[in-house]
Amino acid sequence: MRSIRSVLNRVHHPAILAAGLVLAAAIPIEMCVYSSQNLLSWSTIRISLLVAVLCAMLGVAPTWTACLLFAISGYALLWLFSPLTTIMIAALTSIAVLSFVRPSLGAASALVAFAALVVSNTQNNLTASNIVGMTVMCLCPLSLGLGLNLLLAQRQATAALRQQLDREHTARHLHDTISNDLAYMILRIDQASHDDLPDDRDQYQRQLDNLRAIAETALDHTHQVIRQLEHDDEADDRNRAVQQDDDGTGKKVKRQQKRLEGIIQTQRQWLTSLGFQGDDILGTFDYPLTDDILDLLEGLINELYANIAKHADPDAWYAVTISFDQQHVIISASDALKNSAAQLGLGSGLERYQTVVESMSGTLAIATDDGNWSVDITIPLLSSDDK
């Protein structure tokens, strides 16, 4: 049982294995037909059985097995003059397999096959039609193998790009949620360590509850990331399609508005607990946002408030404004940098978002002037009806 599993684990190309097994079964069947008519020699029978074994092994080790199959089946065709049609198909299959797994070997085998056919037919009248036929016979499996190789390479490149984009999205999500939640906790702990212990037990309990709420949020964001990594893309696409069909436009807009308001309210509460005061303005929109725009907007909101908490002066006023028109989301944020902002550094969160926004033909401009910091962001958008 273990040996069978070991062999199955080595099968990298199930389609090649299936084609090889079909050939391996077809060769003995054709041999039985010709043997009943006494048309096969013992040499042809032994070589044909060896070809059948090699065909059955194509899926396990396609490179060296295809090379042996090409050499032995070519020998059977050219020097034994085997009448078996399946032997010729096996020879052409070996060229196709080599062209798929190793294009250089496939091209070399096709050239060798063409040269061998020309040499074997020099004794006969070698006409232009014969040359064309031999050329087509060698080019067909070569073209098939090369075409499949290019298709596989394209799919692998697409999968690698998708994996890279998923990793970048996950890294950005981790930075915007869990790392920012932990940064809030550090700031709250630092604030509590510099302040005197409160005499009021209720006030002390409120501080602990606040820290616990931040920790629970970080844990919830961790679970979200885990679910995102484990989520099936096709199921996610189906769920989104069903959701868009079932929900009316007005309900979806209200749900998205409430979702953004909840994020801003949570961030405002955290800033208030750190001693910040400012304006938080979220405009309204009368059309549903696409899922990509909504995810990007949520991440930007979390990142902007996290930057305020880490780099802004709590004694200065901050402002965050989010407005919408028919074609854009417009975000503005401003605050005053604290003296120790340089120690924490501005990080790479907004730099990553700048790359994403600019790739969507949007803008993200950061300005600092005499200790004042501001950012202006414009994100082009389409409603889900226009998508």
Rank of each mutant, 00 (worst) to 15 (best):
A183T: 11
N210Q: 14
S129G: 01
L187Q: 08
V119F: 13
Q191K: 13
L165Y: 07
L161I: 06
T170P: 03
A192Y: 07
H221C: 02
G106Q: 08
H194W: 07
N130Q: 12
D200C: 11
I131G: 00
S143N: 09
M185S: 08
I131W: 05
L161F: 12
L161D: 11
R238M: 12
R227M: 01
L161C: 08
A218H: 06
Y204R: 15
N180C: 07
G133P: 03
S143Q: 10
L144W: 13
A160D: 11
L144R: 10
M134P: 00
A171G: 00
A215K: 04
Y204H: 14
L142D: 06
C138D: 01
D200G: 05
L197H: 15
Q164I: 00
V136L: 13
E234D: 14
I186R: 15
I214K: 10
L142K: 03
I131T: 00
E168T: 08
I214G: 01
H231S: 15
V101A: 02
Q228C: 01
D232K: 01
Q156V: 04
A108M: 13
I189N: 04
A159G: 01
D202V: 11
R206E: 14
R167G: 06
Y184A: 01
A113K: 07
T177P: 07
L165Q: 14
R162K: 15
L150K: 12
Q123D: 10
I226R: 14
D195I: 05
R238A: 12
M137A: 11
E234G: 05
A115T: 02
Q123M: 12
T158L: 15
A235S: 12
L117G: 06
V112S: 05
V132Y: 07
L182H: 05
H175K: 11
Q156T: 01
P103G: 05
N149Y: 11
E230Y: 06
E168L: 07
L152H: 15
C138A: 09
D181P: 00
L182V: 10
L144A: 13
L152V: 11
H221M: 04
D199Q: 14
D236Y: 08
A160T: 08
A183P: 05
N121W: 02
R212C: 09
T127P: 05
C138Y: 05
C140N: 09
V101H: 03
A171F: 08
L111W: 09
R162H: 09
E230A: 12
L174M: 06
Y204W: 15
N125I: 07
A159V: 02
A157K: 10
A110I: 02
D196V: 11
D220P: 03
M137D: 01
L146C: 06
R172Y: 01
L187E: 02
L151A: 15
G133T: 03
Q228L: 09
T177N: 03
F100E: 03
L105I: 00
L152R: 15
Q207G: 13
R167K: 14
Q224H: 14
F114I: 02
L139R: 05
Y184W: 10
Q224D: 11
S129D: 07
I189E: 04
L151Q: 14
R155L: 14
H194L: 10
M185K: 03
N125C: 04
R227S: 06
R188W: 03
I131E: 00
L219M: 07
A160F: 04
A235L: 13
D220M: 10
L111I: 13
